[in-house]
Design a protein around this nucleic acid. Structure first.
Lengths: 242, 242
DNA sequence: AATTCCAAGTTATATATAGAACTGGTTGAC
DNA sequence: GTCAACCAGTTCTATATATAACTTGGAATT
């Protein structure tokens, strides 16, 4: 948020300047998840810094979940573990052993003017709305309305559906260099309206769980707002605190 | 709780040993929130370590939210912000401006043998069960069943109710030196049985939200299991991810 | 009485260095 | 061909040191 700064190099400590530089180069796509970044020693030489300073900068990015250090091997760009974090909250109760990712179908994608409340969150009313339905165990279990700013995702609505997998965040990263670093969820309870009921294959007025999520990029900018609805009786939301 | 880990000192790196030692001394109540811990230099001398190693250990505890460093002044025990973390998730939707903590009434406290599922989580079946009802805006909104191991909380059932405030975790800390450092919540929806309905003042069969929580101490030991139930239509659960 | 200044103590930043622990590949012996 | 030994490169741990930035309290000055 206060990180929009291009003038970052004011008179910040060296380790912060290096952290920012690395973050920028990562965001620019300089490295892939399977190739090592320059070694600590290399970065120290290049930047005319000591190894300790370099390690402090790199450690910050590790703590932020961007990088991954492998002793004896190198420092790598981390493959975002969407399953383990942003996604696992949507597991269903009776899944048994299934760690499988639910399949998903895109119902629609369209350019539109966002409702005021959503425009307020995203900071713009020029958005793309994605309607999506996720199946699990051969039954629809989650109906989603997703809003993303056109500014950040130009042309998203024209990407062939075949190139969009069951998870959106990897698409955001690969095609638009938008990294979803954190999110806020809000869980509540409601009853199904007609549209939702027909999508989920339940009756109008049936109990549903509602998850509203705002997703943020690394610098804290909101990059997505979505609402997901599913049958309340099959729903379970897990959260770790502290 | 004093020293669960006698074997901890196996052959861990020095900074981890120091971190563990400090965590134990903090848990034992050696310092208050308004007095400084020994300085980095002092800890280095005492432990025959270098300052860098000490700083690494202290920094871990800062990252874990236990300590707080004030440049030029010292390192202090942080005042646990129960409101800001473990508690805020239970705010109700229509609260308006009310940041107030709901009042709570203890309905019962008794020594008992825990059901298998709970004994499994807590690692013992000798527990104390606390039934509690929380009010908000003059209406009951949360019915809780709380289970804590007798081993960790001996005599909890005999504490005068007047000495138990609306929040339990401060009581755990002050009287039993048990620090609740993290928790896992699981939110689901169900319908009210007779007991719950009468406590909450709703009808049997009405939709309720169910929050099951396992709370952990610093070293990861489960120290409490609770289930909370409230009217689903007034419920809202907030969670930050990543 | 109020303000300024100073000194000691503290955390924060940064460097330089050394060896341990580990990885991945190459070489060599069998 | 297989296995063991070796090696270069990497991260990890730890020490020692120096300086900057900041806080606090008391002394000195006005």
């Amino acid at each position: 948020m206060v990180e929009m700064n291009l003038q970052a190099d004011a008179r910040l400590p060296a380790y912060l300047r290096l952290r920012d530089e690395l973050a920028a180069r990562i965001a620019a796509g300089e490295w892939r998840t399977d190739e090592a970044l320059p070694s600590d020693n290399r970065l120290a030489r290049d930047g005319d810094l000591s190894v300790g300073t370099v390690r402090k900068a790199v450690q910050m990015l590790v703590d932020e979940g961007l990088l991954e250090r492998r002793q004896g091997s190198g420092t790598y760009l981390r493959k975002p573990a969407f399953n383990a974090t942003l996604f696992r909250f949507f597991q269903m109760r009776d899944s048994g052993s299934g760690q499988s990712i639910p399949s998903s179908r895109l119902l629609s994608r369209e350019l539109m003017t966002a409702p005021a409340a959503i425009a307020d969150v995203l900071g713009t009313d020029e958005v793309i709305r994605i309607e999506r339905l996720r199946d699990f165990a051969d039954r629809p279990f989650l109906s989603e309305d997703i809003y993303i700013p056109v500014r950040l995702f130009p042309g998203f609505e024209t990407i062939p559906e075949s190139e969009i997998g069951p998870l959106l965040y990897p698409v955001y990263l690969d095609r638009f260099e938008v990294f979803v670093a954190s999110a806020e969820d809000e869980v509540s309870f409601a009853t199904a309206d007609e549209t939702t009921a027909s999508r989920l294959g339940i009756a109008t007025g049936d109990a549903i769980a509602v998850i509203e999520r705002t997703a943020y990029s690394l610098n804290g900018t909101p990059v997505e707002w979505r609402v997901a609805r599913g049958p309340a009786d099959r729903f379970r939301y897990r959260s770790r605190i502290g």
